[in-house]
């Protein structure tokens, strides 16, 4: 197991390097640059700007400097747009925010989604089943960019219960709407995947055997059905986990949370090369780590899988 983990982590290094190289060149090939503006600076000013940020160097040199700075100093460079902040600052400020509301959304989506899915499968073809299925479809059909404005309209303008946005250090009032907005559609998907997976498991031979030997339904569900049910759910949860943790641009835009999602999209639009690369690397590392964790979870869930 340990050697498997080490092997996976070693493979991760060239993966991340490839990611950096691909992202770096794609970024530079996109038309326009960080200093392209409606008021293009005069040539002398542009030359100063490029010299300050090292953009006057050949591309391979820029890439080399970038990577060595990360490896030697853990320095992801300055932001080209926010002149007094560097990429480390931006990630240090935005990532904890994304992490907080993302993790809570993940917890909400997975716990509620799995419970709903299980209940629906156990009470197959009853009103409970129909109700949870329609709830799931409705939740899935309401993406967060629809949920956001509806929530603000309801809770802020009509009911006056919650502040319309902001973060305020993550006080609960500021967390409620982002978490609901971000989690509902995942919740819907998770409940549907859980339901169909559970139905399949409940119809399998080993469950029939368990029933035949007279085990109580509770034990059958908890001890025998739940774990195999989680296999397909798990493969869906992995990517969802990365996605919600890295922040959602919609949540950041609608609730002014100040998370990393907005910084990521904003940096692509303003060609803030270093921020874009920095956040991409963070996302890459997270994906690699979460994929590893998901694979380890498979081994725990399914005794047939051994590393």
């Amino acid at each position: 197991m340990l050697s498997y983990i080490i092997r996976r982590l070693l493979v991760a290094i060239p993966t991340i390097l490839l990611l950096i190289i691909a992202c770096f060149f794609l970024m530079h090939f996109a038309p326009g640059g960080p200093f392209t503006s409606e008021r293009p600076p005069p040539p002398a000013v542009l030359a100063n700007l490029e010299a300050r940020y090292g953009l006057d160097q050949p591309l391979w040199k820029q890439l080399w400097d970038y990577v060595t700075n990360i490896v030697l100093h853990f320095d992801f460079g300055p932001s080209f747009k926010f002149k007094d902040r560097d990429v480390n600052d931006i990630i240090a400020q935005g990532f904890p925010i994304s992490l907080t509301y993302g993790f809570l959304s993940f917890l909400a989506a997975s716990s509620v989604g799995i419970v709903l899915g299980c209940v629906a499968a156990i009470r197959h073809n009853t009103w409970i089943d129909y109700f949870t299925v329609s709830l799931g479809i409705a939740a899935q059909a309401l993406p967060n960019f629809i949920m956001g404005p509806i929530l603000i309209l309801t809770f802020t303008l009509w009911l006056g219960l919650l502040p319309g946005g902001g973060w305020n250090g993550g006080q609960w009032q500021y967390l409620v709407m982002p978490v609901i907005a971000l989690s509902t559609s995942y919740m819907g998907s998770i409940s549907r995947i859980t339901r169909s997976s559970m139905l399949e498991v409940l119809n399998s031979n080993f469950i029939r055997t368990a029933r035949a030997k007279g085990l109580p339904a509770r034990t059958i569900i908890w001890r025998h059905a739940l774990k195999p049910t989680m296999m397909p759910v798990m493969s869906y949860l992995g990517p969802v986990f990365v996605y919600v943790l890295t922040g959602s641009v919609f949540v950041d835009i609608y609730f002014s949370t100040g998370g990393l999602g907005q910084a990521f999209v904003g940096s692509a639009l303003s060609r803030d090369y270093s921020v874009l690369l920095g956040v991409t690397i963070l996302y890459g590392v997270l994906t690699v780590v979460v994929n590893l964790l998901t694979d380890l979870a498979y081994a725990w869930l399914d005794p047939k899988i051994r590393y």
Binding site: G148, P149, I152, L153, T156, G164, I253, S256, G258
Partner: peptide
Amino acid sequence: LVINDENVALTR
């Protein structure tokens, strides 16, 4: 206050 979406800003 930074509010990216103008309709959300109007609601607030």
